[in-house]
Structures are given as structure tokens and as C-alpha cells.
Nucleic acid binder design. Structure first.
Length: 499
DNA sequence: TGCATCTTCTG
DNA sequence: AGAAGATGC
């Protein structure tokens, strides 16, 4: 371990004052409903708020580019918020254990944090707890950003839930989640950030922002941070939640809550969202509450089966003969040039604004794993890099679900038809027109299948298939039959193995 | 949180 | 002919 130099005059300063308690922020970048911060501030001791940007510890999955962009702005916002209660945020980078060890040597009273639920992160946290105990530093951890912790909702027969519906029934029966805490009062004057190896560093030094500025669409779309999260929640409750159950499926309508990246970084807790929802009963509110349940369910599943982000839940799929995509085919999917308008609109929405309508996530993912027969991990990695809400549990598990290798997956024969899905959920083509502007003038009738439009129509709207917009990269009917054959064969192999 | 195809019913 | 329902992948 690297021994960090301790600056002598600073140490003297520390010993003459009461030692600070560290509040270690992680995926909980908020002041509201923040148990660790609340406990530290109400103790009346000096509080030192820190964040450690750790991409190097064993097993930690490096953040994708969109998540890095989000984190940058979220950290800036958290620092602003902390200043409103007399604190500020000190940033460090490097291996967590080394940074914490160095900090402890500067004289620390205690360490507080809210729990995480992924394997690598829990190993780090356990090591930090051990470190504190060895050094005689009081350490306290609190419930993380979930409604229920993974070990709280388990079947009577033991093990863990593999199907959402029984999980959610049990979670609801388990009783109400903790009422969210408010913002703690002003904190004791914040201790200065001790200088150690790894920090404190300026936000810019973390290098989270893109080097070439591709983030214009993200900047125009999102307001990372606690205030943005609260605003999104207010807007959702005011204008969207009533019709959520129906509007969420309409691609051209902004019917979703847009809370997912805020929840991912813990800028708002699901307990706060539930508390706000409970003031308004109704089936739409319940539908939305269940969506929060999905987040917990996936978190719990990953907790119980740590390799789910890379390994199929159904092990037989490790041997599935995926098609190796050509670089051109992969790029066509990634950048929205498949020739299927609704698929291309979704992939371009993702690239431009770091999110994608949930139904379109299913359509585009299904296209990659069924029409192109690609390994779901290829798509998972792309989403991980481009989604602002890329979540270590939700992203891989949703991909496993659509690929058919997950716990409780879609049946293998369920293959989305991108034309029918477009016609059903984007009947006026508003979504396609927004993200595939070269098709904007096509009449509704052809907007989801330009290759069927009569040539005089195409001429009139300046569409030349293969030039201004790609011809379909695969034929839906043929690709569907090919996928059904491959998946059925795979299934027969399975049955034979088991027999 | 599907799709395609077949059957039956109705005008 | 076309809607509506049933069925297998």
C-alpha cells in the first residue's frame, strides 16, 4: 500500500481541534433521505464529506461515458447542496482502501456510509470497515438506496426470488419502507479536506467529461443532481402519473418519469418517491411503484448471483452459437442505421440524449439478439457506455431477459416485429420523425416501412433507400425464422442433455 | 411487455 | 371480405 505523506503543519492543526467524522458518499449523491449524512450532522461533530472515484479496485466495473458525464455534474451539484448547509464535498481518486487508509492517518473520529449491494463494492466496503476497526475508528453503515435490502425479501423456503411478481408481493407484505428523512440541519463547520495521496482533487481532475464535446444533447436534456431529481419527480406527479399506465407505452409522448438516472446515482431515494406516490392512490401510481420494485428486485438478484452481469442465468446459453457481427453490422445497430425506423430512432435517441424509451429498449435489444443473433453482452456493453441510467443490475438483467437466458425470461419465440411495434406504439410516427429526420416527410402509412412505399412517394419526400436512409439490413420474416430455428435447436440440445 | 396463421363468425 | 378468437412457435 502506498504510504501517503502527511503534511506536518496540517496534522498539528487536526490534533488541536476535534477530529471530523467522514461521510463517505457513493451512489447516494443527495442530502435528503441520506441516513449517513443525517447521523453525522446530528451528532454535532465536524463532518468531512468525501467521494472517492475508484475505477481501479478489483472487480469494479468502470463507468461508461454517459455515466461519467452524469457523475461529473452530479458531484458538482452535491458540492453546491452541501454548501447550503455549511459543508462541502472533497473528491479523491484511486483505490478506495488506500485512500481511506491515508485519510485515517490524518486523524479521523468516525466513518459513516450507506450500504451498497454489489459484490465488488461490498468487498471494498468490508475491507474499509476492517481497516477502521483496526485503527480504532468508529464506523457505522446505514440502509442504501433501496426500498428493501436484498436479504429482507426472501422466500419462506429460503434462497431468493427469481420471479418478480412473487417478489413484489412479498416486498409489499414485508411492510412499509422506512419513511424518508429530511435534509439535516446545518452542520458543524466543515473540516478542511486533508491532503493525502489521491486527493483532494478538483472535479475537473477526475476527467469525467468527454474530450470532444459530444454531450450537447445530454446537457439540453438533463439536470443531474438532487434539484433536477426533485424537479423531475414534481413534474411526474403533477402531469404524468395519472396517465402513466397508458402513456408509458406511447413512444412520442414524454409519459415516463425520467427519474432513472437520478435514481441510479442516488440523487433521490426510492423511499422518497414512494412516499410522494402514496399521497395519490390509483392504478397508475401502483404501476409506477412496481417499477421501483423492479429496481430492488434486480439489485437483489445480482446480490444473490454476483456473476449475472456477465454470465447467463441459464448456463446453457454460455454455449449458444451467437453470430459474430461484422464491425459494419454492429456499427449499423449502434448508430441507428439498421433500416428499421423505430430501431434506428431508438438507437439515435440513446446516442444523442443518453436515454431510450423503455419499450424501444426492448425493441432494439430484441433486434440485436434475435434478428441479428448477436451475443446479448455486446448490446449490454453498448448500453452501459451510452445510457445515463446504466445500472449494474438493471442493465445486464434486462438484456438477459430479452435474450431469453435470464431468470424468468421472455419465451424464446417472442420476437418483436419492429414494423408492428412502431405502428402500434408510434402510430403517427412522431418518435421516428424526431430522431430519424431524413424520413420526417414520409406519410404515416410508410413511416415504419419506407421500403414498401411506392417510388413516387419516396421521390416526393426525397428518400432514396440505400442512400439517404438505409435499406433494411435484414429481412424481418427471414430473420425471425432463422432466430426461431436457432433458438429451438438450442432448446432441443438442452432437452437432450438433460435426458 | 409477441407474432403469424388458422378457424369461425358475420355481413 | 374482414373481424375476432384460438393456437403453436
Amino acid at each position: 500500500m502506498v504510504r501517503a505523506p502527511i503534511i506536518a503543519p496540517f496534522r498539528k492543526l487536526m490534533t488541536t481541534r476535534s477530529k471530523p467524522t467522514i461521510v463517505w458518499f457513493r451512489d447516494d449523491l443527495r442530502l435528503t433521505d441520506q441516513p449517513a449524512l443525517h447521523a453525522a450532522v446530528t451528532s454535532g461533530r465536524p463532518v468531512l464529506c468525501i467521494y472517492i472515484f475508484d475505477q481501479v479496485s478489483e472487480g469494479v466495473r468502470p463507468l461508461g461515458a454517459a455515466s461519467r458525464w452524469w457523475l461529473h455534474h452530479s458531484l458538482a451539484s452535491l458540492d453546491d447542496k452541501l454548501r447550503t448547509i455549511g459543508g462541502r464535498l472533497f473528491l479523491f481518486q484511486g483505490a478506495t482502501e488506500a485512500v481511506v487508509a491515508a485519510l485515517l492517518r490524518t486523524g479521523i473520529e468516525g466513518l459513516m456510509f450507506n450500504r451498497r449491494y454489489q459484490q465488488a463494492e461490498r468487498r471494498i466496503d468490508d475491507a474499509v470497515v476492517d481497516l477502521c476497526r483496526r485503527e480504532g475508528v468508529a464506523v457505522e453503515d446505514f440502509v442504501g438506496s433501496v426500498l428493501h435490502e436484498p436479504w429482507e425479501v426472501i422466500p419462506k423456503t429460503g434462497g431468493f426470488y427469481k420471479v418478480f411478481t412473487p417478489y413484489w408481493r412479498a416486498a409489499v407484505a414485508h411492510g412499509p419502507t422506512l419513511p424518508p428523512m429530511g435534509v439535516p440541519g446545518p452542520m458543524a463547520k466543515s473540516a478542511p479536506g486533508p491532503r493525502v495521496e489521491g486527493g483532494p482533487v478538483a472535479l475537473e481532475e477526475l476527467g469525467l467529461l468527454p474530450e470532444i464535446s459530444w454531450d450537447g444533447g445530454l446537457c439540453d436534456t438533463w439536470e443531474p443532481g438532487q434539484d433536477g431529481a426533485q424537479r423531475a419527480l414534481d413534474l411526474f406527479l403533477r402531469e404524468k402519473v395519472e396517465s402513466y399506465a397508458t402513456d408509458r407505452d406511447r413512444l412520442g409522448v414524454a409519459g415516463s418519469s425520467r427519474l432513472s438516472p437520478h435514481l441510479r446515482f442516488g440523487e433521490i431515494s426510492p423511499r422518497e418517491v414512494i412516499a410522494a406516490l402514496e399521497r395519490r392512490a390509483g392504478s397508475s401510481a401502483e404501476k409506477f411503484a412496481a417499477e421501483l420494485g423492479w429496481r430492488d428486485f434486480n439489485t437483489a438478484l445480482l446480490f444473490h448471483v454476483p456473476d449475472l452481469s456477465t454470465a447467463p442465468f441459464h448456463k446453457s446459453y454460455a454455449r449458444f452459437p451467437f453470430t459474430k457481427l461484422t464491425p459494419a453490422a454492429l456499427a449499423a445497430w449502434q448508430h441507428g442505421r439498421t433500416g428499421y425506423p423505430v430501431v434506428d430512432a431508438g438507437m439515435r435517441q440513446l446516442w444523442q440524449i443518453g436515454t431510450m424509451h423503455n419499450r424501444v429498449r426492448m425493441i432494439t435489444a430484441s433486434f440485436l439478439v434475435k434478428h441479428l443473433l448477436a451475443d446479448w453482452r455486446i448490446g449490454e456493453r453498448w448500453f452501459w457506455d451510452t445510457l445515463c441510467d446504466a445500472d449494474p443490475a438493471n442493465n445486464p438483467l434486462n438484456w438477459q431477459w430479452i435474450a431469453g437466458c435470464g431468470n424468468d425470461p421472455v419465451p424464446y419465440f417472442r420476437i418483436f416485429n419492429p414494423v408492428l411495434q412502431g405502428e402500434k406504439f408510434d402510430p403517427d410516427g412522431a418518435y421516428v420523425r424526431r430522431y430519424v429526420p431524413e424520413l420526417a416527410d414520409l406519410p404515416d402509412r410508410w413511416i415504419h416501412k419506407p421500403w414498401e412505399a411506392p417510388s413516387d412517394v419516396l421521390v416526393k419526400v426525397n428518400v432514396v433507400l440505400g442512400k439517404t436512409y438505409p435499406a433494411p439490413m435484414v429481412d424481418h420474416a427471414k430473420a425471425r425464422v432463422r432466430a426461431l430455428d436457432a433458438l429451438r435447436r438450442h432448446r432441443e440440445t438442452l432437452d437432450r442433455d438433460q435426458a
